[in-house]
Design a protein around this nucleic acid. Structure first.
Lengths: 337, 337
DNA sequence: TTGTACGCGTTATCAG
DNA sequence: CTGATAACGCGTACAA
């Protein structure tokens, strides 16, 4: 059925090994035979059988990506970046959705490990111990999480928080709340610490950590009332989805944004530009994050020696939209709280 | 490095073929040796080399998915469904993003074809001719598009449109606009025709087809002014993203939704519940669409004979939110237009 | 019931 | 520069 190197060899009048060489290392073969082989191959529509190749080379030309939820815009964008970069590098991408379940996550990695040269694990939920074990079984690159000395791509959370706080300070806010994500989330711990650090840095700034919430709209709805009760005039959310929940809850309670409260999200997922009011957000280069993960992975895969970049910290950029504004009279706010 | 069937055979004290049988067809081997093999395999952590297996069986245990844009919530949800169903069926999923480019689409299919048992093509942009050619080269299932006699999963566009129109009629609207998607889109042609059909069906209903727009927010912004100029009091959009653009443009022009104009989207992507006002939308079971695609594909792959279900039409359900309301006095609207 | 032998399609080795 | 041969790990006739 399918045309094999053997067929090409017959047509070109050479041996199978010559066919293999002519395609893999053209300079190791005489120009005359090279064109003969290439023409025969193209004429027959020959494509190497990758399974057979990987059987002998031990490499697959594939990479794997595991994310907690493909429907989450954050991961959708990262996935896009991974796929894009892998494609230009000639790699195909296996995708797996762990449904936020750490157990499945490890299982998915193990299932895919045998079919790929390496894997990108995005915002992994697994414990450090499990990750260390997985890293022993296959080449791994972490995204949005540090764990041991596993190669990783992260976001500059401290800088992002700094920009958000600076923006709010400039608008006159002096009491800022932080609505956090899951305590188990590495990036949430980073961001919470960064907010505290900013509070310590500015004498005239009060920071209120409201605790942990689900990193979805539901979590933001729960957090909304706490924000109002805290007396803060601005709130920074763990991520944009949570920020949307805040906006929704404020709307329900008749609190105006940004007149009464300013809201800053994190991630700047595409939809954040579409809501009303537009969401001010700590912009993360989501697609580039995926690309960076693949770059690091391929670096590791192709160069077994320890590369210089075991860690890549991506820069962020605050995107200001209508959900933040000057701190006005907060009398109305207090009445509501 | 990796443990092979040979190692298991040595430990269990049997031959390689017995190992192979004990795992593939346990009943064809003596119970005693079976447990011996299984224990040895588990003890060594043996997992069959899939490349080697596929080399001999001709099947890979993988499927491929090609979508135009992973960041588009519609495709993200379908992808989630594909991955979910494939996983429970024991299949791994290759993902590819064509960036809306028909040329790349065909190329991606060809690249992946050799590594998969079949592919799901979601909302393919390619021409019928190209699709027919691809279908000859590998097992194909189309989603959201009909082409020749290629197996396909579609949406009941006519019924969706009927529900949308019935809803608007019940609210008192008598002049309804349709803001379409790309003319090259199969589903847009379906929906445009369905809207016209509804217009012909109801004597007291006027339907205005506004033409084609980009199926993104940008397209909706462009369409917004045409809606107002058309004198329609309600508009049905090709998809939710386009509907968001309409909402945005109406906001810019000071037109209130739903007081002045009602807006109905299509797809009911997750974010449609988050905007303000919430978007009334023709709900498509997005995740199930992906699942249905995989079901059909696996059916084809495992049963070479023509299956009874070459076509699966998914039901839809209008989801009513705040973007639609009773038709009030349209005097204010005419003034704006 | 179990073992032997072969072949899947490719690349690597080595002899020529 | 080229060709024969072995090997990758597994499944499957066929023989025992």
């Amino acid at each position: 059925m399918a045309v094999s190197a053997r067929d090409v060899a017959r047509v070109a009048g050479v041996s199978v090994s010559t066919v293999s060489r002519a395609l893999a290392r053209p300079h190791e073969v005489a120009p005359a035979t090279r064109v003969k082989v290439l023409e025969a191959a193209r004429g027959l529509g020959y494509t190497p059988n990758l399974a057979a190749r990987s059987l002998i080379t031990g490499r697959t030309g594939n990479i794997g990506l595991v994310v907690p939820d493909l429907e989450n815009p954050f991961f959708a964008s990262v996935t896009k970046g991974v796929q894009s970069r892998a494609r230009t590098a000639g790699y195909a991408v296996f995708i797996a959705d762990s449904d936020e379940d750490p157990t499945q996550e490890a299982e998915l990695v193990r299932n895919l490990a045998k079919q790929v040269d390496g894997m990108v694990l995005c915002s992994p939920r697994a414990t450090d111990a499990v990750l260390a074990e997985l890293a022993r079984e296959c080449v791994l690159v972490l995204v949005n999480r540090e764990s041991g000395d596993i190669p990783t791509v992260t976001i500059d959370n401290h800088e992002g928080t700094r920009q958000a706080v600076a923006h709010l300070l400039a608008l006159g806010h002096r009491r800022i709340a932080y609505a956090g994500g899951p305590t188990t989330s590495w990036s949430n711990r980073q961001r919470a610490a960064a907010v505290e650090a900013q509070g310590a840095l500015h004498g005239d700034l009060e920071v209120v950590n409201l605790g942990s919430f689900q990193p979805y709209v539901s979590g933001g709805i729960a957090a909304g009332d706490l924000v109002l009760a805290s007396g803060a005039t601005a709130v920074i959310a763990y991520n944009d989805l949570l920020a949307f929940g805040l906006l929704e809850r404020f709307r329900q309670r008749g609190v105006r944004v940004p007149d009464d409260v300013s809201v800053v999200g994190t991630d700047n997922i595409p939809v954040s530009a579409l809501t009303s009011p537009g969401l001010t957000s700590v912009g993360i280069p989501l697609v580039n994050t995926g690309r960076a993960g693949v770059d690091m992975l391929l670096h590791l895969v192709r160069d077994p020696s320890t590369p210089p970049t075991h860690h890549h910290d991506l820069t962020v950029q605050l995107v200001v939209r209508a959900s933040t504004g000057p701190h006005g009279g907060d009398v109305a706010l207090r009445q509501l709280a």
